[in-house]
Design a protein around this nucleic acid. Structure first.
Length: 515
RNA sequence: GCUCCGGUCGUCUAGCGGUUAGGAUGUCGCCCUUUCACGGCGAAGGUCGCGGGUUCGAAUCCCGUCCGGAGUACCA
């Protein structure tokens, strides 16, 4: 039987990194087995429905480059792919009736208030809370008829078998077992007629012929209810894979308060989709050897269920940055330029940085600086592309994110350089600097461009002629004069990239700072 | 409270009865070098949550215990 897996988010909000990991596992597993990847929208809760959510999912998934074979946006033979539409189509009705007819489910007429009272009583008496029968599990047909005649709203609950063991398999943990008397009767159809997750997801998994269910470990608790449902129908169960959760530094499930959890934020922070996927795949899974940096197809062919871990993992931003840096360095010139351009010119990016709240109390580079530098780069890429592109290339080895190209290239692109005070103090006090700058101005004067070799020739020649056996004392002041700082690309590359005009202007300005 | 799941360097992890407990990241140092970065090399960092057992031998098997987490909804 061919593999069919599904990603089944609930459209209540954003797509966060925990969910991303789940899709990545699904995707990798599907690819590994040439299976089918399905998107299913679990919108059975009308109160929490967020109409923008589904578009967010699609956009995010498109950005990370995960493609679905079936889903609400692409169609397929097992549709519709939204549970609200499936409900409208009457798909669930015959299954509910089947359960009712078999006596495997029953109608219950308590009000939410009554249920709350019941739980309160259970808590006070230190009993397990939940619906273990109430007044309706064993109600007579007459009682039910009477309640209906009164027009009482009712829900339908699954009748969990009593005094037995419920046994399930989980790929990651092996055999899981519950005393059925500790499992309460779940609602499968709400008073508004909508199915609950417990019902709709299982029925749909069966109908859509899902072979493997990847879901977070927070579902383990309700797994016995799902097993009971499959058993009530007599259906074969898919393979369940309960994936460890991704937690924040406090050990709790990742949420907004842990900083960037929205996947699309990683786009604007300058992460490469492949690096993000690679990183996230490695939380809770490993290929069984020491490989970490893996190409997408390598990841897919290495992905196997045995490598999935049971214990939760933390999200290590530093390691993600490292991995992303490796990804950036592996880009060839053309893809580097196009990737950077696409991000930096994205109309959304400036509003992202404008509205960004600092996660790090003392970030090295503020959101304002990113905002400014990125727009500088974007317009340079439009107006002076050859120059701007060369700047990007020269910074490739020095950045960890695509967004870093903004601040990294800013000194190249800006008209008025800002000088690092310490750098000026350290290098502009030397007596030879004035002559050096004058000679450099002479060297570029009248030229329209200078090659890297010419620049190297000038610097080395100047050092020799002026009695320096090492070029450091020549290189450093020149660098400060041209870039305002002490770090950055190799000086000869820097000079050649800037070109004679900018060099001349910068020298003139630097000379004003000389004592 | 009840049910369930976890627990190996700060972090991600390898490990499945015999290893100097391995790798990666981060940190630090050295090398490369015109700076920064990249790259290379190296160091520090783990009494494998704790306590008992089983065994010649336990991170690995068993029991207990502690800690963390999840669920405990007409949410998913």
């Amino acid at each position: 039987m061919s593999v069919r897996v599904r990603f089944a988010p609930s459209p209540t909000g954003l797509l966060h990194v925990g969910a991303l990991r789940t899709v990545v596992f699904n995707d990798l597993f599907a690819k590994r087995h040439q299976g089918t990847l399905i998107l299913r929208i679990e919108d059975t809760d009308r109160t929490r429905y967020n109409p923008e959510s589904e578009a967010e999912f699609i956009e995010t998934l498109k950005w990370v480059g995960i493609e679905f074979h079936e889903g609400p946006h692409v169609g397929g033979d097992f549709g519709p792919y939204r549970q609200s539409e499936r409900k409208e189509a009457g798909i669930y009705t015959p299954f509910v009736e089947e359960l009712l007819a078999k006596g495997a489910a029953y109608e219950a007429f308590e009000t939410p208030e009554e249920l709350e009272q019941m739980r309160e009583f259970q808590r006070i008496n230190k009993m397990p809370t939940g619906y273990f029968g109430g007044d309706w599990r064993d109600a007579t047909p007459e009682q039910v008829a009477a309640a209906k005649a009164e027009g009482k709203p009712c829900v339908i609950r699954l009748k969990i078998p009593r005094n037995t063991a419920i046994v399930g398999e989980d790929v990651v943990r092996g055999k899981l077992e519950w005393d059925s008397n500790t499992v309460d009767d779940p609602v499968i159809i709400k008073a508004d007629g909508m199915p609950t997750y417990h019902f709709a997801a299982m029925v749909d998994d069966h109908l859509m012929q899902i072979t493997h269910v990847f879901r977070g470990e927070e579902w383990i608790s309700s797994y016995p209810k799902h097993i009971a449902l499959f058993d009530a129908f007599g259906w074969d169960k898919p393979v369940f894979v309960h994936c460890p959760v991704i937690v924040g530094n406090d050990g709790k499930k990742l949420s907004k308060r842990h900083g960037a959890t929205r996947v699309l934020d990683y786009k604007y922070d300058g992460f490469l989709p492949d690096a993000l996927k690679n990183f996230v795949a490695l939380i809770g899974w490993n290929p069984g050897d020491d490989r970490e940096i893996m190409a997408p197809d390598e990841l897919a062919s290495a992905f196997h269920l045995e490598g999935i871990q049971a214990s939760p993992g933390k999200f290590d931003m530093e390691k993600l940055k490292w991995m992303n840096g490796v990804g950036i360095r592996s880009l060839d010139r053309d893809s580097l330029i196009s990737t950077v351009s696409e991000l930096v010119k994205d109309p959304e990016i400036l509003s992202y940085y404008a509205g960004k709240e600092p996660e790090d109390p003392a970030p090295k580079i503020s959101a304002d600086e990113y905002h400014r530098a990125i727009s500088t780069l974007a317009s340079a890429l439009d107006n002076d592309s050859a120059f701007a592109e060369q700047c990007v290339v020269l910074e490739q080895e020095r950045v960890q994110t695509l967004a870093d190209f903004g601040p990294a290239t800013e000194f190249f692109l800006v008209e008025e350089l800002s000088y690092d005070e310490k750098a000026v103090e350290k290098w502009f006090g030397e007596p030879h600097v004035r002559k050096l700058l004058d000679d450099l101005a002479g060297f570029v004067s009248g030229k329209s461009e200078v090659s890297v070799e010419e620049c190297e020739g000038f610097v080395k020649g100047w050092a020799a002629e002026n009695g320096f056996d090492k070029i450091g004392p020549v290189v450093h002041p020149t660098r400060v004069a041209l870039s305002g700082k002490t770090s950055g690309p190799g000086l000869f590359d820097l000079m050649s990239c800037l070109g004679p005009d900018r060099i001349a202007k910068r020298i003139a300005r630097a000379k004003e700072l000389l004592r």
